[in-house]
Design a protein around this nucleic acid. Structure first.
Lengths: 130, 130
DNA sequence: TTCAACCTTAACCTTGCGGCAAGGTCAAGC
DNA sequence: GCTTGACCTTGCCGCAAGGTTAAGGTTGAA
């Protein structure tokens, strides 16, 4: 199967497949005589694995580690769990940060009457002298 | 005051100040005979404004709009409020997305015994055939 | 034959800077 | 007068994670 088919069946774009190959997540694809990459079912499983891991927000580096664990039939599931938990922690940090921003902004907009008049506590807060 | 001073007093880095000037958030700074940029109190207020807006997560494009509204003494506060609310909406979208990822991952890790054995529902879920 | 739908590589665009290079300037200390 | 170090200048490369476009080769069907 060519790259377009592989893309359609894995949920990745052609571009992403080539990018991941270049990045090192995938072994160099086999080529037909015309130079086209082709993929078998095994490749496809790998592509889908990557797609799902990316959907869960893992970085490419984390995906690489997950792939290695996946291939290692002697892995300890504890290692995978640890990786996932670290990622959950990272997500929590980012959520907390965004929520902090959000409540600051909500507090400001709550105070802004939001009509035709120019005085605005949002701008005042931004302009505030330290 | 030179750029280093302005950076220290505004909370931005020298690099950011030059970048913002180039980007158009700042007018071209006046130069001394030696070519060094220099800044007055008015410039400093603008730099601090930018710094605070960035801390609240506004993009450079949004900061540009906020600066324009700030300078416009006839603005309607409604416009500022609208911008802020749009940004809150964007933050909410991102938070919801991250939380979705987090709960999916938590569900998976909850099911993973996380010991020496290699079988792991996290990897299984990623490898699942569609 | 010609057209569309594939495929190829390469290179540039994004956001928001950090880092580094290579060099000019300035003040202090010897 | 010399050096040292802190500051300043411009400019280019790099990051994630691709999207987009260019310029061209291949294939199959009408």
């Amino acid at each position: 199967m060519n790259i377009g088919q592989a893309a359609a069946q894995s949920g990745l774009s052609r571009k992403m497949i080539r990018y991941y190959e270049n990045y090192g997540l995938l072994p160099a694809a086999l080529r037909s005589d015309n130079g086209y990459r082709h993929y078998n079912d095994n490749d496809l499983r790998r592509l889908r694995f990557i797609h799902r891991a990316r959907e869960l927000g893992f970085s490419l580096e984390e995906v690489a580690r997950l792939l290695a664990l996946w291939q290692d039939k002697d892995r300890a599931s504890a290692e995978v769990k640890k990786l996932a938990q670290a990622h959950i922690g990272e997500l929590e940090r980012r959520i907390a940060e965004l929520q902090q921003l959000k409540s600051s902004l909500q507090e400001l907009t709550r105070c802004c009457h939001g009509d035709e008049r120019p005085d605005c506590p949002i701008l005042d807060a931004l302009a505030e002298t330290p």
